[in-house]
Design a protein around this nucleic acid. Structure first.
Ligand SMILES: [Mn+2]
Ligand SMILES: [Mn+2]
Ligand SMILES: [Zn+2]
Ligand SMILES: [Zn+2]
Lengths: 137, 137
DNA sequence: TCTATCTTTAGACTTAGTCTAAGTAAATGC
DNA sequence: GCATTTACTTAGACTAAGTCTAAAGATAGA
């Protein structure tokens, strides 16, 4: 069972229509960094009459209200991320999949010290190969 | 005057057609991180009959041969970068402009130490406001 | 209920990018 | 030098991602 999405939307100043709740139920609980069309196709499985425009509008509204973030990391693709806390990203070069890397896993030094730039935010973008998960015995 | 682009292309195993030289003359000497269509429109100023497909093909060929890099940093836009050395990027949130940040300006610690990921490359992506250049007296 | 506002919808439109089929140009063979 | 093959370029068709529009549907208030 899902937590009450409608209440969460209202808390962020969003009227919880059926379509918006359906989008929220998917996009707020994924760790897959989906594109807008991926969200659309997943939401349509349970809500077949939802329109493409509504999904795009809803995702943009969620970004505006701070429920999710929009990322552009690779291949000119825009994806959405329900993790709005500071964190880094790792891109698997073979699969294209994007993984979260905890903020504390890395430290970047001298960020405030860059001549001529006032830094408001930053993240490290890493690329490589994900090691196959070692199964525990 | 420009250095001899044709020779440079040949050194990278690229036959230097007039169109490719025209693309090289612009894209290898910019620090603006242009999109493919921006390159096309700049190249057409001096070479009005060049086609869109040729510019796209040429840029992709240059990437494949290691003359330039393709970046996806913001707004779902793909841009090209003639600086193929390791460096970081700063994005001005007001103008959208992308600036190079020297590799030595920052240090990222513990990169090799991330559980489950084999890191082949990384960069720091910073966002903020560029300070207006202090004019010298 | 009547009305105003908000939301959703289908489809048109736009932009970025790839693909195709035909035409040019350059290289190779004789 | 001429014929043939190969490489390159071209215009335009096509696709994918995204926005916009105009009409319809839902919600909430008077
Ligand atoms: Mn595309
Ligand atoms: Mn777009
Ligand atoms: Zn993330
Ligand atoms: Zn750069």
């Amino acid at each position: 069972m899902r937590p009450d999405e409608a209440a969460l939307l209202e808390k962020h100043g969003i009227k919880p229509s059926a379509q918006r709740v359906a989008v929220a139920e998917f996009v707020l609980h994924t760790d897959a960094h989906p594109s807008a069309d991926e969200v659309w196709s997943r939401v349509r499985e349970r809500f077949p009459m939802v329109s493409r425009a509504t999904v795009y509008n809803t995702l943009n509204l969620f970004v505006e209200k701070g429920l999710i973030r929009q990322l552009t990391l690779t291949g000119g693709r825009v994806v959405f991320d329900p993790n709005v806390e500071k964190h880094h990203h790792f891109i698997d070069e073979e699969t294209g999949r994007i993984y979260d890397v905890p903020w504390e896993a890395l430290r970047v030094s001298r960020v405030d010290d860059i001549d001529g730039f006032e830094v408001h935010a930053y993240q490290v973008v890493l690329r490589g190969k994900k090691r196959s998960r070692r199964r525990r015995t």
